[in-house]
């Protein structure tokens, strides 16, 4: 990202001309108090929001000048995980993950093998037929991670993935992300979880008031936000 800024329609300046470069295969924590610009930073990456100024390049896409019709193709290379999982309650675990492939018109035979493979990876192959409501919070988040990964994205973005989970479950999910990262996938994670950032050392980018105030490899969470 070069000189990237974002001003919302109501005049709020969420980001002031920031510069960041994230290499392939990195694991990056994005930290900072609420309203510091973390979420905006995340949303700019998968073009949920469009940058007001500056340039963003991801996987060879010129994200800042991408046309509406090309956005889906940027997103096929990015997996996104949220704090509230965003699973479809009427679909089984298998169907939830398969949904991500169906809607990008993947061949049905391919869907089956890809879904089982990724469910194996997150350790939920035996619960493929369950509904989300029959799973624990941690298991539901695993399904969401599986859905983000099933399209084999080179970049996974997670917005507070452990925000709704208890500490033990959070550790499980973090181990899963670490494993994904070791397989070569870039992980960018916004988080408020101090323990995780301090125990699993990775690059830390800290935001405050729309500026990057700190960017260090093997960083600490820092301030008590």
């Amino acid at each position: 990202m070069q000189n990237v800024g974002k001003t919302y329609a109501n005049g709020t300046v969420a980001l002031h001309a920031i510069n960041v470069e994230i290499g392939a295969g990195e694991f990056v924590y994005v930290v900072g108090p609420s309203g510091a610009g973390k979420s905006t930073f995340i949303k700019l990456m998968y073009r949920e929001e469009k940058a007001s100024l500056g340039e963003i390049f991801i996987n060879g896409f010129h994200v800042h000048q991408l046309q509406e019709k090309d956005i889906p193709f940027l997103r096929r290379g990015i997996g996104v995980v949220f704090q509230d999982f965003k699973l479809l309650p009427r679909l089984t675990v298998f169907e939830n993950v398969a949904f991500a492939l169906e809607v990008i018109e993947t061949d049905p035979q391919e869907i089956k093998s890809k879904v089982m493979e990724v469910l194996e990876l997150v350790g939920l192959a035996n619960k493929a037929r369950n509904l989300p409501s029959q799973l624990s919070g941690g298991e539901q988040q695993r399904v969401a991670v599986a859905r983000a990964l099933v399209n084999r994205p080179s970049l996974v973005i997670a917005d507070e993935p452990t925000g709704n989970l208890d500490p033990d479950t959070s550790d499980d999910i973090m181990n899963l992300f670490a494993e994904i990262n070791q397989n070569g996938t870039t992980v960018v994670m916004a988080t408020h979880n101090k323990e995780i950032v301090n125990s699993m050392k990775n690059r830390v980018i800290a935001f405050e008031g729309g500026h990057i105030v700190r960017d260090e490899l093997k960083g600490e969470y820092g301030y008590a936000y």
Partner: peptide, 17 residues
């Protein structure tokens, strides 16, 4: 709404939606 949001997120084209 939820399905559409997820469809957009995983890169379904607008026409498909």
């Amino acid at each position: 709404q939820n399905e559409i949001e997820i469809m957009k997120l995983v890169g379904a084209t607008n026409n498909f939606i």
